[in-house]
Amino acid sequence: MKKIVLMTTALLMVVGFSNAVMASPEEDRQIFLNFYKERFPNVPQDDYINGVYAIDPVGRENWEAIEEFPPYETAIDAGKSMWDTAFANGKTYSDCFPDGPAIMSKYPHWNKEKGSVITLPLALNACREANGEKPLKYNKGAIANIVSYIAYESRDQVTNVVIPKDDPRALEAYEMGKKFYFTKRGQLNFSCANCHLQNVGMVLRTEILGPAVGQTTHWPVYRSKWGEMGTLHRRFKGCNEQVRAKAFKPHGEEYRNLEYFLTYQSNNLPLNGPGARK
């Protein structure tokens, strides 16, 4: 009996403590939104899907000119033909994704059986492998094409990341993504938050630092600097490497959890991928 009482008190203490230090994902999202609202009182919430151009009127003009002849159109077309073409075994992507290509808002999500976050590229490669096809490389090329097509077909959807309550590991994954976001990394010792929160709107040499909210709505992106399409995790890699940290494996645990955390902060924002950036 004494033991049970002791254990319960210990448990209550732990729960009480973690409640005190841990904000809920929804509270985090409100903190992000309020932070940006205070910095940029005139930017309407939905405009954050345009990334840094929501707060950079000069860059926005160039970008709008680019969007008139979208550089990602060929990627959408190539992705559509991938979707429509049968694998060697005669099956297609539709056999794995019976709801069709408009499925962007379902990712990333928590998978209870696997005990991990599932991103869209992971699901696409799982489908390929189940059908005897080689998995695609994650950063660019064919994967960016098929995700571009899916993103385009999903354009009327909104971001809707769910952290299911029936599996505490889902919240843990979110918290790990959050920790990653605030951890200073690399020889230059920057966290994601140092640039995209603390110094948002400021100029780093020639680049204006964009807000975190809205950063996930428009992938893949045709980036002028790359001269081609790239995926979200390719951008994670770039942002890690510019502070001289070693990048992590695309769709490995670190970046999966980071995507889970980061995409959550864009909840309720429309999906507008694929996109173009400088």
């Binding site: 932070f35 020889q187 929160l197």
Partner: peptide
């Protein structure tokens, strides 16, 4: 790099968050 991570083992949210 090791020290950098160990010193941040516990998440410390910055004052601006």
């Amino acid at each position: 790099g090791y020290e950098q991570m160990v010193s941040q083992e516990k998440l410390r949210l910055p004052s601006y968050f």
